[in-house]
């Protein structure tokens, strides 16, 4: 099936699932209306809970459902849609407080019945989820602690939300409507169990061993991993995986990293990781022989998915990692298609893989345009931040036929996408990878 058709199917399924509870509650016996604002408020509460439930499915790493979009985009969507769920969950009680001020007094008096307490605590958990996710770095919350808290808060918000709906019983008094909500809660629990228990169990059976730790320019490290007692896995150049080091796969201390090795060679697999905080700052302390666990591969950021007579790559900083995987693979395959790389970095001294890129130019038809924001005094190449005029100068005449791959910080991706589109490259030819998720 065409990727667009598959994507449309999953989007329609998402819309159907997220709306279904509202429709179903209107079927069969139902209470009489209690005024527009009262019922509107309840509908928002149901919608918020349905959205929360779908978030569990979005993040359950179903490879088939996420493949047409790229799992990075699914996580990005999860982040945005969750804001919508939070807005609904906030308006729901506010409308009720406005219409029935007595309710607010009951909360302040501390005489709230249990079925309303569940709703209140559910909202508090959701609010904590929002704050800790949107401002994790500003609040200096460690990524590993955030991961654990995120799962616990999400489960609390959803399960208490469902308990609130079932406890109140308005619109869900019939047996099958109660079971609709309990079924939703069970589906979410199943999705959480799949990611947190079933997947780690599968990983335990397929351990990896650190074979080499290589220091690269620009505070980056390449970890080379070798499969231990199994054949590893096949991946497409440019894909990424979740990597667990120095802890059990059950500990939720996994981190997504791009694979930087060639997909043409079986067995060993490399990740290139920049010291950017938390876990990554200590990556250089990893020793040869340590055990690792890899959940992957994921992602659609790959030349093997988008065939073209030539490619344009845009890398910002360590965003070079998946692009190195593609360049190395093309070199190993003896591919002679024309390749152009725009590579933005701060300084020449810290530009990761610059020596290997020069070597690769002898094996593949590669042109590299370095863009330095802090160039040395004698620098004659492009400088400053990546911008449209740099693309205008560097892009070849056959640009419209090429497929473009952009990887780097999110603001750089936005600038590059816009500039490439203005330079005549169709939006369907522009692919990007988001790695700055939380």
């Amino acid at each position: 099936m065409h990727p667009y058709l598959r994507a449309t199917f999953w989007i329609l399924l998402y819309l159907l699932l997220v709306q279904a509870p509202l429709f179903v509650l209107l079927l069969g016996p139902k209470p009489a209306g209690d005024g527009f604002w009262f019922d509107f408020s309840l509908a928002l509460g149901f919608a918020a809970t349905a959205m929360m439930a779908i978030m569990f499915l979005l993040t359950a790493r179903f490879q088939r459902a996420t493949a047409p979009f790229g799992i990075d985009l699914v996580y990005y969507f999860h982040r945005l849609a969750a804001i919508g769920a939070f807005v609904f969950a906030t308006i729901h009680p506010l409308v009720l407080f406005y219409k029935e001020p007595g309710l607010l007094r009951v909360i302040l008096d501390g005489t709230l019945p249990l079925h309303l307490w569940t709703g209140l605590v559910s909202w508090v958990a959701l609010a904590a989820l929002m704050v800790s996710s949107l401002w994790r770095k500003s609040l200096h919350i460690h990524y590993d602690a955030w991961r654990v808290a995120h799962v616990l808060l999400a489960l609390t918000a959803l399960l208490l939300g469902v308990a609130h709906i079932v406890g109140v019983g308005h619109y869900s008094a019939t047996f099958w409507k109660t079971w609709l909500w309990l079924g939703i809660a069970l589906s979410c629990l199943t999705a959480a169990v799949r990611v947190r228990l079933v997947k780690p169990l599968q990983l335990l059976r397929r351990p990896w061993r650190v074979a080499r730790v290589i220091e690269e320019r620009g505070s980056s490290w390449t970890l080379v991993l070798r499969p231990e007692g199994h054949g590893g896995f096949r991946y497409l150049p440019g894909q990424f995986a979740w990597l667990t080091l120095r802890s059990s796969p059950f500990a939720m201390r996994e981190h997504p990293f791009s694979i930087s090795s060639s997909a043409a060679t079986a067995g060993e697999i490399s990740f290139t990781i920049k010291e950017l905080g938390d876990f990554t700052n200590r990556i250089g302390e990893i020793r040869v022989g340590e055990t690792a666990w890899i959940d992957g591969p994921y992602g659609t950021f790959s030349i093997d998915i988008s065939q073209a007579p030539g490619y344009v790559f845009v890398a910002g900083g360590v965003g070079i990692a998946p692009i190195m995987s593609m360049l190395r693979t093309l070199a190993d395959r003896g591919d002679r298609r024309p390749l152009l790389l725009f590579y933005a970095y701060h300084t020449w001294e810290r530009t990761t893989f610059r020596e290997e890129l020069e070597e690769l130019r002898e094996r593949i038809d590669l042109t590299v345009v370095y863009v330095l924001s802090e160039p040395p005094a004698d620098w004659e190449g492009e400088q400053g931040l990546l911008r449209e005029e740099i693309f205008a100068r560097g892009l070849p005449a056959d640009r419209a036929a090429r497929e473009c791959f952009i990887c780097g910080p999110t603001p750089m991706i936005a600038v590059a996408e816009k500039a490439l589109a203005r330079q005549g490259i169709a939006l369907t030819h522009i692919h990007s990878e988001i790695f700055d998720l939380v």
């Binding site: 998402y14 209107l26 604002w37 019922d39 509908a43 928002l44 969507f77 945005l80 849609a81 919508g84």
Partner: peptide, 30 residues
């Protein structure tokens, strides 16, 4: 483009749910 696509889809699906909530209330309170 991908980011914009995700943003539009999130906004559209949220607005759709908002509209459905209004319809829900209108059906119950004609």
């Amino acid at each position: 483009m991908r980011l914009r696509f995700a943003q539009l889809l999130a906004l559209a699906s949220t607005l759709l749910l908002l509209l459905l909530s209004v319809i829900f209330a209108l059906v119950q309170n004609p």
